[in-house]
């Protein structure tokens, strides 16, 4: 691709879903743009591009963040987990299984963000109460489900007794 005006390529090294990677990004790319457009991790969704919806939620160095509010250049040397890194080679994460069994998704576009956020919750609070779940997930918007089955799925995944890995 020829360089267009105002584009500046940078190289970023980061560990993405456990794999060390080196990728080319534009200096003005957000982490969301880099993950989607440069690396091809399309599971990270864009709903608002300004931190309001949580569809782009990823885990950055152990913390939940909105990928649309992080610059790609900032993640040099960091570790990032996206929805694509939640299931293991053994199968789906208990949360993913619970979302399926509880019909916790309709259109599904919010689902990656919810599952990543819920995983971060179970990592710090393996047995949350309903209110804990609602508070933690308040940054993730879902317009289809009314949240009922999402909250239920998170509670069910926690109640499974399976440790969230």
């Amino acid at each position: 691709m020829t360089e267009a005006a105002g584009t500046r390529r940078i190289v970023v090294e980061a560990t993405i879903n456990g794999e060390p990677q080196e990728f080319l990004a534009d200096e003005r790319d957000s982490l969301l743009e880099a993950l989607r457009d440069r690396i091809g991790l399309m599971g990270v969704k864009e709903g608002c591009n300004n931190g309001n919806c949580g569809a782009c939620t990823v885990i950055l160095d152990g913390r939940l963040v909105c990928a649309c509010l992080v610059m790609a250049a900032e993640v040099e040397g960091s570790a990032i987990t996206t929805i694509e890194g939640i299931a293991s080679s053994d199968g789906l994460h208990p949360l993913q299984q619970a979302f399926l069994e509880d019909a916790a998704l309709q259109c599904g576009v919010c689902t990656p963000g919810f599952i990543v956020a819920a995983k971060a919750l179970l990592d710090v609070n393996p047995h949350p109460a309903e209110d804990d779940v609602r508070l933690w997930l308040a940054g993730n918007l879902c317009r289809c489900t009314g949240y009922d089955k999402i909250v239920q799925a998170v509670l069910d995944a926690a109640g499974d007794g399976k440790e969230s890995a």
């Binding site: 949580g54 939620t57 939940l64 963040v65 909105c66 509010l69 308040a138 940054g139």
Partner: peptide, 9 residues
């Protein structure tokens, strides 16, 4: 401030 993901930053 914001939600959990906003507080992360």
């Amino acid at each position: 401030i914001g939600g959990v993901a906003i507080q992360g930053r």
